[in-house]
Design a protein around this nucleic acid. Sequence first.
DNA 1: TAATGGGGGTTTTTT
DNA 2: ACCCCCATTA
Length: 692
Amino acid sequence: MFDLLADLDPQQRAVAVSEATRLRVMAGAGTGKTTALTARTAHLIVERRVAAHRVLLLTFTRRAARQMVSRTATLISRARSAPSESSPSQRIVGGTFHSIAHQTLRRNAQALGLSDGFGVIDPSDAADMMDVIRNDVIEDRALRRRLPRKATLLNIYTRAVDTAQPISETLERTAPWAVRNSDEIMRICRQYVQRKREFGVLDFDDLLLYWREALAHPTIGPQIANGYDHVLVDEYQDVNALQVDVLQHLVGGEQTLTVVGDDAQSIYSFRASSPDHILEFPDVFPGAQTLALTTNYRSTQPIIDVANALGSEAPRGFMTTLTACPQTTGNDRPHLIRCADEDGQSDSVCDRVLQLREEGMSLREQAILVRAAHHSGRLEIELTRRGIPFVKYGGLKYLEAAHVKDLLAVFRIVDNPRDELSWFRVLQLLEGVGPAKAHKAILTLGLHSSDGPNGVTLVEVQRRWPQVAADLGRAARQSAAPVIDALTAAQHEPLVIHAERLRAAVAPLIEANYDNTDVRLTDLEALAQATNTAERLCEVAAEHVLEPPHSTGDLADQPVIDEDYVVISTVHSAKGLEWDAVHVIHAADGNFPSDMALTDGDGLEEERRLFYVALTRARRSLDIYVPLRFHVNRHAQDDRHIWAQPSRFLAGAVAATLEETTHLRPADFGAIDLPRIDAAAAIHTRLDNLWQ
DNA sequence: TAATGGGGGTTTTTT
DNA sequence: ACCCCCATTA
């Protein structure tokens, strides 16, 4: 018979079978955390007879959730010698904090005073709202221009919400230059909250806030929490105070709680997470037991040496020191490659990538990791020039999916006609309709004026539409009519038919507004078909918002899948992944650690953890590239450069673990021999003192 | 109203 | 190079 625990090492086995009701697992990088967690879950279900649907697994990414739910199901079906893994008795409830929150809110919308077809807006919608509000609320143009840009406004708002700190405090920490305008920013935030309510929409933060509110309620809360007997949380180092609150309520009864994480990999402080939460877990959850996973099965000894050396330099240290698995082979020390400038770096990376491929390592086994998405710009040019295919993760432009957002906006209107944001978007697809006419139309439709609890109904919209149409050109009137009809028609039809009707009505508008119509229309067909498993259109829209395309490859057509390609990824997006070879570029002070993060000591420590995450992605080969000269500005095309020191993380104990080489092109001779003085670092320190 | 051009500013990471 | 804002023009 299949033994669930057979492939586990003693540490992992301890995690799998522990009967602690509060368990913290400190799991270092590459130590088989997923293996241990899925074994624990399967063990609960197979050996301790827990029903699968009473186990809740919370993660931070969709990918992690999917992976663990299906691996658990596989384990269970093997242990029971059952043929299929799709049986509900084998599938636990798993998802990101946000998606589980969303499902919970849908089920309890009425009890929570939410309108029943509430919409979920993505960060770019939210930012657009911020933009509109700024223009409405701030009269003075000069003042308006001094305020942060829309995305920054949203960041400030989010951070204030996540940390439950007043805006003024948030500004001090994250945007000190905007402190003088804190009054205006507060007014904008207040309006933002109010408008979301009027429109009947929730943003990402709201999902968690409402979830917590529901859980904190004396009768609703326990009812939700009692749906589960066991709660497991992955990547616990990334939780913020709000999420800890949610968990406390979720396990307020008889439930058990297992959290797994690594304090060394806490890299989301901009979302108000802090490694303190995993470090202080026993204080918040009394009686907690702690286990550790310390044997790294991923990387060779020399790579682990670099990671441990980096950890040893952290002022507070990291809780786990990694031990290499005795079976790993490979003695090559990771390289620190000095390059003259960014182009030299691009050159060097390409050379190395091709060299490794010639040694038999396919491109797909290699990744190039960057601190900031734009760091790979010049490298991408060089990769293209040399015909090396690549796929970039992170930093996807939402606009590329504008047509998808258009149809989703229509979906949202169906269930929530007072969603002004969606109307605003859809109306502007009509010819001759810009912001001004769209706004007027919204007033005419009287989206909020209605008496009903959920605002206007679609029937009312249809009745008032002729008034709007009178103000439109002929073309706009004609192309709008089918959309309005499709919105109201077919409420009794199967969802997928209704969705298809809407798609057909919107398609001509898409054709009129965008290039690349073929690809876009295909996307929309897929989207309409995807509604056949859902119960409501607003659900489809929300799920889509919660799982945006993650790489440019996700949006592209399938053929890419068969090809061999290098992955370019931000370090943040690379967490949880691994490759045979990892190339970390731009490891120069100012880029990595990023200048932006150095306003306080916490910032520097987070950069160190980020660097740690980057290093520990590598299985067999690790190369760190240091361009000594790079462009001053993000988008600079001019010749203004600054000289940089290698990243401060490469000094001290770490230096001793690396093999240093210099990559020179003929043109670089001379350049590289210029004296390297410590001026940059000295000035940096001096200036840093000014801000404290 | 949408399209165009000039000018000024440009602070990372993402569920 | 790019984005954002504004004024001008069709």
